[in-house]
């Protein structure tokens, strides 16, 4: 779905970084993708391969670090792992859970030469 335009945004950030940092080839791209970011890792890999063709990232390996969805339960006052973004607290059943992670969509790092 929108992995194609996300891959284009990633490539745009890589090209901007290349200009600022003065590198000509990317060997590795590290992304952080949250469990609730609505992104399929396999679709992302496929799309990135397509958009990176004939660019400085054409030969880059794509590493995707999955970030689990977690929340802070205000009732039992602890951090809990969530399987859905709207989950009640899996520990105490409380409704008041504040999302702490899982929506990440970040270009974390590059390995370049």
């Amino acid at each position: 779905m929108h992995e194609l335009s996300l891959a284009e945004h990633v490539l745009g950030l890589i090209e901007e970084t290349a200009e600022a940092e003065g590198f000509h080839r990317v060997r590795k791209v590290v992304l952080e993708i949250g469990a609730f970011a609505a992104v399929e890792a396999e679709a992302m890999r496929f799309c990135f391969d397509v958009v990176a063709r004939e660019t400085i990232a054409a030969e880059a390996a794509l590493e995707i670090i999955g970030i689990p969805g977690t929340g802070w339960c205000r009732e039992c006052r602890r951090t809990v792992v969530l399987s859905e973004v709207f989950d009640d607290c899996p520990a105490c059943g409380g409704r008041d859970v504040e999302l702490r992670s899982g929506r990440e969509l970040r270009l974390k790092a590059l390995e370049v030469e």
Binding site: R27, L105, K108
Partner: peptide, 16 residues
Amino acid sequence: MLRQVQVERDILAKND
């Protein structure tokens, strides 16, 4: 020579 670059940027930064 290989080197690491820490980018730490949101993928949708430009759209935002």
